[in-house]
Amino acid sequence: MATDQSSIGRSVLLRQFLWPFITGFWVVFVGVCIWGGGALAQLAWAEQRAPDDPLAYQIQQLQLELDALATLTPVILQPSELAQAIGDAVYNTAVWAATGTLRTLMNIPGLWRENAANDFIRHHPDPGGTYAQKMFQDTGHSWQRLVVANYTLATRTAMFLAMLPLLALTTAIGLTDGLMARARRRANAGRESASLYHRAKLGSTGLLITSYLACLAVPSLTQPVWVLVPVAVGVGGLVRVQGGYFKKYL
């Protein structure tokens, strides 16, 4: 029994120690999958719309979306500057990760490097970093298309983040009206509905996630207001349902 309890104690301590790393891993993994999927979607749309010159089509589309982003009124941050910062962060992270991986594989001193068949790996002071730079230069057209797709996704992310003040407003209105409805329901001894509350809670989260994924995947987003305003209003309505059917007694 003592052994079982000590084993349980160690496993609990281990989970408490590892959960930040596990959470961070899944956040990074999901983020890479979403961003990579969005980039592949943009490449596929460009191939379909302009098979002769997809890079020129992507650049033209990016410029149109940047012009649309510039029309949004800044509240906290300038949307154009935010898009540039997001795009630069993703680009620099990708280059840093690829360069670091190649340096790890090619720069580690030891018997493997000393006995490598390639003279470049044996004698160059930084074969991994040099090879990474050459790789990015030689990819040419394909790499440029990925870079443009990255900044297109960054622009759309900035559009979505520009909705946050409107989302906060509709959420506050929906919550206030919902709590007033809850107060009337309590005063009249009305029934609460945990089913509606939980479905509205899941619906508001799901609406935000699916709308963001749709923004990344659509071929064009030159009219963000027609997308962002209905999403904010829909979330506000779902929050109103949550407030109205919250627990009768706290």
Rank of each mutant, 00 (worst) to 15 (best):
S80N: 08
A39C: 11
L55D: 12
G24M: 00
E65G: 07
A39R: 10
V32H: 03
L66D: 09
L64F: 06
D53T: 13
G37F: 01
Q60K: 11
I22V: 06
A68V: 05
A70V: 02
Y91E: 15
Q48F: 14
E65M: 08
A44I: 11
D53M: 09
Q48H: 15
A56I: 08
I22N: 01
A50E: 15
I86C: 04
Q42E: 13
L69F: 03
A83G: 12
G87S: 10
Q84C: 06
T23F: 03
F25I: 01
G24L: 02
E65A: 07
L77R: 01
G36A: 06
Q42A: 13
P54Q: 09
W35K: 01
Y91D: 15
T71P: 00
V27M: 08
I59M: 11
W35I: 10
I76H: 04
L69M: 03
V90T: 13
A56Q: 14
Q60M: 08
N92W: 15
W26A: 02
I22K: 00
I59T: 12
V75C: 01
A68T: 05
E81R: 13
I22D: 01
D88V: 14
L72D: 06
F21Y: 03
A70N: 04
W35L: 10
L66M: 09
V30Q: 05
V32K: 03
D67F: 04
A56D: 14
A44H: 14
Q48P: 05
Q60V: 07
W45T: 10
R49Q: 14
P20R: 00
W45Q: 10
Q60I: 03
A68D: 08
A83N: 10
Y57T: 12
Q84E: 13
G38D: 09
Q63D: 14
L64H: 11
L43P: 10
P74A: 04
V27S: 04
F29T: 03
L40G: 08
A39D: 03
A41W: 09
Q42S: 12
D67N: 12
A70Y: 01
L64R: 13
Q42I: 07
V28Q: 03
V90C: 07
F29E: 00
L69I: 01
V27D: 02
D67C: 01
Q58R: 10
L43D: 09
I86V: 15
A70T: 02
T73N: 09
Q63I: 05
A68L: 05
Q78L: 06
L64C: 05
V27K: 04
E65P: 08
A89H: 07
A46T: 07
I34G: 02
I34N: 02
P54W: 09
A46C: 06
D88C: 07
P20M: 00
L82S: 08
T73S: 11
T93C: 09
Q42R: 10
E47I: 04
V75A: 08
F29N: 00
Q63A: 12
A50M: 15
L55N: 11
W45P: 10
V32F: 12
R49H: 13
E81Y: 09
A44M: 14
A50F: 11
T73P: 03
R49D: 13
R49C: 06
G31N: 05
